[in-house]
Write a protein that binds this DNA or RNA. Sequence first.
DNA 1: AATGAATGAGTTTTCATTCAT
DNA 2: TATGAATGAAAACTCATTCAT
Lengths: 210, 210, 210, 210
Amino acid sequence: MRGRKKSDETRLAILLRATEVFSEKPFHEVLTDDISSRMGIGKGTLYRYFESKEHLYFATIVHGLEGMREAIEGCLIGDRPLEQTIESLVATVIGYFWERRDFFVLLHRHETKLDAAERADWERGRDELINLVAQRIAPEIRGNGVKINPRLAVEMLFGMIRSVCLYRDDSDRLADLAHLVTRVFLGGVGPALECAVAPAPVSRIKKVRG
Amino acid sequence: MRGRKKSDETRLAILLRATEVFSEKPFHEVLTDDISSRMGIGKGTLYRYFESKEHLYFATIVHGLEGMREAIEGCLIGDRPLEQTIESLVATVIGYFWERRDFFVLLHRHETKLDAAERADWERGRDELINLVAQRIAPEIRGNGVKINPRLAVEMLFGMIRSVCLYRDDSDRLADLAHLVTRVFLGGVGPALECAVAPAPVSRIKKVRG
Amino acid sequence: MRGRKKSDETRLAILLRATEVFSEKPFHEVLTDDISSRMGIGKGTLYRYFESKEHLYFATIVHGLEGMREAIEGCLIGDRPLEQTIESLVATVIGYFWERRDFFVLLHRHETKLDAAERADWERGRDELINLVAQRIAPEIRGNGVKINPRLAVEMLFGMIRSVCLYRDDSDRLADLAHLVTRVFLGGVGPALECAVAPAPVSRIKKVRG
Amino acid sequence: MRGRKKSDETRLAILLRATEVFSEKPFHEVLTDDISSRMGIGKGTLYRYFESKEHLYFATIVHGLEGMREAIEGCLIGDRPLEQTIESLVATVIGYFWERRDFFVLLHRHETKLDAAERADWERGRDELINLVAQRIAPEIRGNGVKINPRLAVEMLFGMIRSVCLYRDDSDRLADLAHLVTRVFLGGVGPALECAVAPAPVSRIKKVRG
DNA sequence: AATGAATGAGTTTTCATTCAT
DNA sequence: TATGAATGAAAACTCATTCAT
């Protein structure tokens, strides 16, 4: 019982360190030695916890992604108005990466060929995440005359978040960026669009998340 | 002059093939043999034109980026209304990647540590690209109450394009996607926004492991 | 302490084998595989103990030279008359090479460019060796009218030893050769010399291509 | 006829440059490019004159050795007294190397495996050289009670010359060194040897070289 | 269970030689 | 005939993984 617990701690510790190291250099420049020596454990021990370097790498991503999903799910609870929901979500995601620059970097590398099972795992995880948000957004999307696929919309949102994380200035502040992204996502940057169907003054119907 | 001459065509041919191959597998899984043998040239020839595998990889990206800049510059010529300009730009970029899925993949890998000079090169090229567009957009940005940094806006636009390229369905059509991105970028997806929603309190961000 | 430990024995064993192999063929014809496979160890192990093929090569020489210095130092102990001292020294050196033909060969190849630090190492070792002997000889040198630099004298002695080792017949015996070299070094081969023969005019040296 | 002559010049020029380059670095660090580019000729041309890099290397040594033999033969002509002959010979050899440090270095490298025929060539050349001198010396050798093999004596002489060339100071002068070596070779460095048979006052019989 | 020495298949890179121009 | 681009066999070295201790 205690032994088991100890193992789990070690596993987690390895995962955390690995995230760190993998985010510093590309996969093929990270040596297993880098990880084990940085942790102060033997290289062999690594292999007691993870099947191979690639499995470790993968576990590292899955672990980070899981944390992010939890955080995001938290944002969708309750039935706040859409803008508030989105803004808290954006702030959460930016914040998550803010504190885990390493994981962010990691997440945006697609370096390793994983076997089918693992790739499926990863993609399912990602999918659920997108769906979660898409469902919340879908009912309130208003495309100004274009039909908008809600999942694609969420992807675009994430694309914007990604860009902001990558290219923000050091002086930028989290809350401001979150607000910015939210506003642009919901309202765009442009001047009133001439051609657009005059947007019906949509009454803010409170929609309970289904 | 006597003897055979080093040819630019060969250099270009290598570049094109390399783009292909590098986009198929991650850097460390690509063998120099893969490239040379697939081209039907000797491995040594590769090294006559490029200092190392990493230099070749890098040259491959720079080359693609250059092509894209040219394409984008073309879109900014003339003084069409903003929406048209943006839409043609978006269509151009999506189209560029559409036909060069390999380069697109490549562009979004950050696998190699480059030496200062090369990294600078790459970053300058990217910078100019962003600036070009930012200048066109700047005067017409309207933030709905948020001050929008034009460069960051362009980054967001590219983030959206990237997402669309990555996550579109096979059935999606280029023109539609371009229109979609343009509309969302300029007009947002959301219902009409009241002008100054109090931003969600940042403290709601779930802290996970400091 | 856990795990296997890096062993000095292995290091030494490698050094000995390498001496063997390096003496058989010139540096660039020796494969790292030759050494490791002949020892029945993996190639990687070589690199665990020595930084590179060149470092190994160098270590091999330094190691042999060290042994020789020890042997020579032994000859200088006690205050036997000069002739006895020289003869034992010559016998020792010839004997050292006699049993280590490989090291002898090795010592007389100047194949590798070493970095400053290593070259310094090697030269310091050699220097000390020469000095040791020069100090013993200096007080008793008698030049027959020529001033003899003791260090240069020692170098000449070593030059003679070298020649004898290289060009002796298989039938020659160690003791005889040692005696021979000693007598020639101390007494010369020639008939009694008149004390100051006018040196041949240098101008006789045939100039070939300047 | 003219064409042939031109070829010979080129051949010689290559040989001279090669001697230069080969003396600067060990064989395996010399690139054929180094040689051809330094000469301002194409790499291919090298191969019109020499079968391979190794053949060129070998030709380079043979060429130098030939020059030395000629110079030495010059010293043996006439029937000067032994000491004069030796001294002029020593001066000649030292001088030869003095002006061809590169060849000297080269001569003392034994790096390449040559095929039987070539090795025989080289050894025959060397042999003749040694014999030439041995014959002149033989009749006048007086060993102080040791029987001295004349060829071995000559080898020792060359060993001393070699040492002097390698380890002399920059301030040393050719004539002095030649005198030094001669005196040591003929008279030794030591104090009168006690055990020696009192040297018979050998009358200086002029021996005509046979 | 943990460690880190040993391993050797797998890669990049080099460079003598050839041969198209 | 001269040139230097092309070649690809050969070699040094790396590093994930294994396994003796």
